[in-house]
Every structure is written in C-alpha cells, then in structure tokens.
Amino acid sequence: MARASTADGPTFRTVLPRQRRRRSAAQRWYRRNERLVLSLLGIVAFFAVWQLGADAGIVDRFFFSSPSEVAIAGWAELQRARFWEDVRVSSVELAVGSALAVIVSVPLGLVIGWYRRLSYAFDPWLNFLNALPRVALIPLVVLWVGLGVEMKMLIVFLGAVFTIMVATVEGVRTVERQLLDVARSFRASEARIFTSLVIPGTLPFIISGLRIAVGRVLAGVIIAEFYAQTQGVGVMIAKAAATLQSDRMMFGVVLVTLLGIILYEAVGYAERWFQRWRPSLDLEETT
C-alpha cells in the first residue's frame, strides 16, 4: 500500500526508496511473457480437465466425448468426401449471404442516413427488425423458397443486413458536424462531400456492423441447417447427435468455433486498421 515504505520518526515520517529485488533471467522472462503463458495454460487446463475427467468417468463420455476421441473422429472425418461437401455448402451459404447483405445494406444505409427525414421514416422498422431474433424468420423463409441452399443464404443475408444497415445509418449521422461545416464553407458540392467525407467517415461503422454480424451470420447458418436437415456442417452436427456419436458432434462444434474465432479475428483486425484515427466505438449489439 501507499504507506508501506515509511519509517516512523518522532517528528517526521520518512518515505524511503523502493527496495530493489534481484531477479533471475527466468523470472524476468516470465514477467515479460506472463500474459501469454497463463492464457495458454488456461486453454491447456481446460482440455486436460475434459480429458482426465472423461478418463476418470467424472465427465460423461456418452454425451461429451473426450479431446482424444474428438481428435480421432476429426481425423477420420477429414478423409471423407461427404464432410468436405458439407463444409463447401456451408461456406458458400455464408459467403453468398454475407456478400449480398453488404451489397444491399451499405448503399441503402448511406442513403437512409444522409436524408434525415427518410431515416426518421425508416427508424421504427429498422429498430423492430434489428430487435427481432432473425432466426424466427426461418419458417417463413422456408415457405418462400423451400429447404435448399437459397433458404440458408437468405437467413444469413437477413442475419447481417439490418445490423450492417443500422451501423451504416449511425455512421452517416455521426459524420462530424464540424467537418461538414468546413466542407460546406469551402462550397464543396454534395456529391463531393459524400465521397470525400461521408463514405470514409462511415467505413469504421460499417466494419463494426460486420463484426457484430459475424456471430449472427454463423448462428443463422447453423440453425438454418439444423432446421432444414439437408446439407452443411450444421447437418453433420445434428446427425451425429441424433445417432449418439458425441465425438463427431464435438468435432463439428470445435470446427465452427474455430471458424468463429477466425472470422472475428479477421474483422477485428480490419476494424482496428480502419479505426487507427478514431477512438473505439460502442455500437449496440442487440440480437
């Protein structure tokens, strides 16, 4: 504590210097890398507890399998053509759905955000659609397009489109007034203001919207595949669960988790890159 180093005299309290501690090279190395060491230790411990618990019969193998079994099942899975077909289908659904969402939501968001009255008119609907758990739309979308890939693409699309649109509208609205005034005082044309100010100013918001969308898009594709039971990694998980192959199911879960981590990291990286000049932004993640 603050006063720990004081020696007490009758009339003066003396603040003494800090005692130097001698540290070995290993101690110094640990202090520098403590964060990395401990976080790796945490992950290793998690898998160790899972494995040892399963071996000792504390963790029910029947439901949770064990890391070694999951690894073996995963290796077997990688040899199968059906698995790669599932991965391909899920990737295409994700890619096409997300790309469509960006293509539709960004221009619309820019326009809605730029015209204040238009944005007021769309506000209630955007807020409603953003607060709605998009997966609730699955049965409706099935009514529209059936159980095929189109349905899953549409669910991915719906999962991302409002999120990105809301973020874009927010971005356009917060383009700094002062900069706008500067541009206007130099008699810049509206088109010029739009391309030189509004679009770059909104970009970080769009990326943030993307980051929030990642989780929804992944959840969307998996639930849609569960629901449709046709093809994809979600189907693989569901089928493995239905046939009580917990090792295969866990492999599927690990796989989508890895995918989630990679996507989050990629978007997070892009976000940091675009926000070099802007303090981090606190967008609401709702559904």
Partner: peptide, 28 residues
C-alpha cells in the same frame, strides 16, 4: 492473473456459435 488465465479460453468460448451446442444440450 485470473484474467490472463481465462482470457484465451473466454475469447474462444465467446466466439463459438453456441447454437451448435443445441443438439448436445437436447441430448443431455
């Protein structure tokens, strides 16, 4: 130190699409 210990694990568990666990949860 508790933070360091959990940070990697939590980041992974948070990035996981939890819906993928539904079949397991229903099983259990």
């Amino acid at each position: 130190r508790v933070d360091y210990l959990f940070s990697g694990l939590l980041a992974g568990l948070n990035a996981m699409p939890h819906v993928a666990l539904i079949p397991l949860i229903i099983l259990v």
